[in-house]
Design a protein around this nucleic acid. Structure first.
Lengths: 194, 194
DNA sequence: GTCTATACCTGGATAGAC
DNA sequence: GTCTATCCAGGTATAGAC
């Protein structure tokens, strides 16, 4: 087969997401991917850092598509947000509180320790913000409101993931979802900011 | 001196917060603490895990006091929330985007890998929720609203920390703070949930 | 190009001198 | 009780057989 690289990327994505960057070993990755050790350096000459960078970009961009898949097709903004947070809660419970954001753990780990990877996570988050802003403007929000709602939604989701994974309870995800909906409603009804 | 243990705890708290649990080595800790290597096992016979557990509990509980120090004394709930998010933004910038939540990075790292430490982070978050609920009820919210606002505020803060540290920009912290204020206002004016 | 063996280093942990 | 020397497993990375 020629999909060794794909298997390494898939195994890395799952291990990095669950165990973090420093918490995942290259030996662990090749074992999970059923690949020989040398393949890592064949496909990723830059070693662990290059592998992680590709994982951050690919799985991060993939995750960002959920704005288009879950929220954009919804009949209205509130319904779209409710569906997105509900879907996140289902996934979290089905995976025993393991599969939340694919890059959040790494983002915190590398924020102050690895500039290359920090930049990769930043570019992913910026892409999400652009995508979300586009989707929300199509629901009638101003450019400024749409951007602010996107940032508020991502923040609420990421923070709720931290609490829900730690507490092993989806309550934070539900509460954060309702708060995001309230923020959206406030913008839609034009109550604006203080 | 007899404060070797305190120096180890202080150095560990800072390193764990910035570099994470797996990203911090015990040798690194004793160097930063100017302590001999053996002292770690003298004061923490359980090794790295016991040290991390004590750090999570102590620095976590310390951080939870900010509810009482920053929000409780405020003239009103909205002002209190604004001050808390503003203070977090100032600290983040002053420390070059390093000092955010003392336990969030570890919480994500250990959520699926170390049940002892996961439980320690969960107990800290539960304590924060209780403290916040108490403070918010004193501002006139119902027990249920107060609990839900607390969870929404912590989620917004934690998520904004992820984005702000990655982007090296306090905009997410500002936006999340305004969203938290909007949620509080909605509860205070009795508009309730849908 | 695939894969194995290995080099080299740092990780956590321990023993024991003082 | 303070501190040093060391152990062994695991980490990343490389060399080279096939």
């Amino acid at each position: 087969m020629g999909n060794t690289k794909e298997r390494i990327l898939a195994a890395s994505a799952e291990l990095f997401r669950r165990n973090g960057y420093t918490g995942t070993g290259l030996k662990q990755i090749v074992t999970a991917a059923s690949a020989p050790f040398g393949s890592i350096y064949h496909f990723f000459p830059g070693g662990k850092e290059q592998l992680a960078e590709e994982v951050i970009r690919s799985s991060g961009m993939e995750y960002g598509k959920l704005f288009d898949l879950l929220i954009a097709p919804a009949p209205d903004l509130v319904t779209g947000l409710e569906q997105a947070f509900a879907a996140a809660a289902v996934t979290l419970r089905e995976t025993d509180y393991a599969d939340a954001c694919p890059i959040a753990t790494m983002a915190l780990e590398v924020a102050s320790t690895n500039e290359t990877l920090r930049r990769a996570t930043a570019e992913v988050f910026q892409a999400w913000i652009l995508t979300g802003t586009g989707v929300f403007t199509r629901f009638g929000l101003s450019e400024d409101d749409a951007r602010r709602l996107t940032i508020a939604v991502i923040s609420a989701l990421e923070g709720a993931f931290v609490l829900s994974r730690s507490l092993r309870d989806v309550e934070p995800l539900a509460v954060a979802g309702e708060a995001a909906v309230a923020t959206a409603r406030e913008m839609l009804t034009g109550r604006g900011r203080g």
